[in-house]
Every structure is written in structure tokens, then in C-alpha cells.
Write a protein that binds this DNA or RNA. Sequence first.
DNA 1: CTATATACGGAACGATGTTCCGTTTATCAA
DNA 2: TTGATAAACGGAACATCGTTCCGTATATAG
Lengths: 204, 204
Amino acid sequence: MARELETKDAEPAAGKRVRADAQRNMDGLLKAAMEVFAVSGVDAPVREIASKAGVGVGTLYRHFPQRSDLIVAVFRREIDACADAAEALAAEYPPAEALARWMQRFVDFISAKRGLSSALHSGDPAYEPLPAYFDQRLRPALENLLQAAEEAGEIRSGVDPTDLLHAVARLSGTGDATGKDHARRMVALLVDGLRYRGDNETAG
Amino acid sequence: MARELETKDAEPAAGKRVRADAQRNMDGLLKAAMEVFAVSGVDAPVREIASKAGVGVGTLYRHFPQRSDLIVAVFRREIDACADAAEALAAEYPPAEALARWMQRFVDFISAKRGLSSALHSGDPAYEPLPAYFDQRLRPALENLLQAAEEAGEIRSGVDPTDLLHAVARLSGTGDATGKDHARRMVALLVDGLRYRGDNETAG
DNA sequence: CTATATACGGAACGATGTTCCGTTTATCAA
DNA sequence: TTGATAAACGGAACATCGTTCCGTATATAG
């Protein structure tokens, strides 16, 4: 899998020829970042990543001018996989259950990447492309699930997918070990809220 | 109101006599911090607060060794007010509605303090006393509301107040201007989730 | 093999949190 | 009133971090 990452992940070849050392360093940075992110979260010091990759910080900034560029590059495959999971679940389960399951799938992903949630909502311009990519890949996936469940009459209508995506991402931002379970419970509650239809309906 | 803060807020007099300049600087720091927090959020630079108060950073650290000590001191009155609001709402509305309204009250509070939400969940040891004070004041308030609504059969049982408190705080962490509305919607959804009782109940 | 565009590395800068200690001063007792 | 002294003050100093910049090294084309 690391093999594939080295050869295919970074720019299949965009017009100009890429210098071999540049490609090598790029791959090394991705690999190092993946490892560092896994143990220290996405807020890990830049120098740590650069040194683990055996390059200077200048090289890191050359390839990833924005911190979020590195994050997106590292997690792109997983984000895409999460988006793709929506279709699979929709094919296998009734609409509302597919929705509920995908939500948990999303929780699993975000919970596993410490600091990703805060980064997503920090508002820091350095992280701008990050929400953008989430919106591009994940929002349509959720939108389809929502629409199907709405049309089946299993959940209320008028729910904004972006709203939900942000909410779940926020709930999944974790620190301690029990954070993931907490997030799962609260997201499940949110889904039940979508299903609720009472006289005193609070939201909608 | 600033008057009251100066005379009553900071340690009514604990055993030893407090030097007048110390008390004065303490009050000045609280006032400065309140203003700075309001415009720059709770992550504002320490130096900014110290200089606005006309003291050195050493003085700030002497009075508030942990950053969260300053935050708690500044917001203590508002936190207490939020906790007290629970009783008032419980007396005026049916259990579940009192619960829903208090949740929104809590959203208003957290949304107004930029960065407070992240600080609460950062896991940073420097912020440790902050969740502690929230737990001490707000959790019992919510616990009462939940219990009343449970006993009235208006919501499901078995919901952990701490879970909910954390969840709402997370949802209320905002950056942009529309953040508060988003939080209100999502929290309302969460409350509806508490009310939902279906065959496919997801959480509980 | 040489020229040159490209990439590299890390020193340097500015911002920040935190500590430390020489200096100042409020308080109290004589 | 006046000195002694414990307490508090202030800000320099240190460590860490993100980010920029530019002299140096080198991969590649011809």
C-alpha cells in the first residue's frame, strides 16, 4: 500500500516533467506525515515531519505551501473511501439505516485522526482547502443518503447536508480514548432526531 | 457591574490579608481579560491581556498560573447564571420543553465566547480546571432537567448528562457568524433525538 | 559534458507561552 | 514616623512553533 502511494498518489504527471528527487521527497514527506499524524495528530510540528522525512522544512513548504495541502494529500484516499461507502450502504440497507450507518462510518474516520476536526473548523486560512475537499467529496455522498431517506418518509425533510456534516465532524473531534464512543452515541441521537416527528418538534 | 466585580469577585478574603496592589492588579486583569476575550477569543495572547491591564506578564502568571484559571474567573458569573437558569425554566415549562430551552440557553453562552469550546475539549493540561468547573456547575443543572423529563416520560432514559453537555459544547464551538444558528439547529435535533422512540432506535 | 532551471536545506525572523530573579513596595510593629 | 520584611512586580530571557528567504547543490536536456 505504501508502494502505491509512492507511485500513484502524487500527481500522475501534470504537463511538465518532475525531477526525480522532488518526487522522492514528496513521497517521503507523505509517508512521514502519515506516521506523525497518526501518533501526534494533524497539529504536529512541521519540523518533526520534515526531519522524519529526512528533508529540510524549506522542502516541505515547497511541496505543501499550506498545511492543509499535506493533510488532504495524506487522507485523500480515506476521504474518498468514506464517500464511496455511502453508495455501498445505500444498496444494502433501507434508507434511514444506510444513513445511520454511514454517519457512524464518518465518525470512525474523523475520530481516528486526532486534531482533524479542530482543523476543519478552525477558520484558519491555512486550512481552507481542507473543508473544501470535504465538501466536494463527502457532502454529495451524504446528500444522496438524505434524499433517499426523505423520499422514503423515514426522516424529516429540509435538513441541510452541510449542517449535518459539520455537526458530526464537531462531535467526532476527540481527545481522550472514550471520545469515539461518546461521538457514536451522540451521532446516533442526532439521527434519531431526524426520525422524530412530534407535535413539539423543535427543529426543522 | 464592574464595581461589583472589583469588590466582590476575587476572593472575599481567605485567611491571610491581601496586599492592596495585588487586589487591584487582579481586578484589572479580570477586566482586561474580559474585554480581550470578547474580541479575540480565549486564545488571545497573554501579553495582550497583561499590557491592557498595565501589568507585566509575571504578574498575570502569579495570579493565574493556569490559563484556565483566568477564564474560569472571568466567566464564573455567567456560568453560574446559566446553571441557575435551569431551575427557572423547570418551574415555568413542561419538562421536555424546559430541557430544550435550557440547551439553547447553553448554546447562546458558549457561542458567545469564541474559542471556549475548543479550550474545553483541547485536552491540554493548561485547561484542566475549566471542564472541572463546568462539570461542577452545569452538569447537576442538566441532570435535574433530564431526570424530570425522563420521569414525565417525555424523553428516553439512560442518557448521560455529561455526554450531552460535551456534545452541545462541541456543537456550539463557532468561528463564522452563522455558527450560532447552525448550533441551535443541531442541538434542537439532538433534543428531538431524545424524544424519539421507534423500533429502530439507534441510540440508548 | 556543460549549462541551467529546479529543488534543497537550514539559518533567520516574528509570535507566542512560560520561567526566573533582581527590584519595588505595601504592610506592620516599634 | 520609620524601618524591616514578606509579598508582589516587571520584563528580560528561554523554548517552541510557523514561515520566509536565499546561497548552494543537483537532475536533466542538449
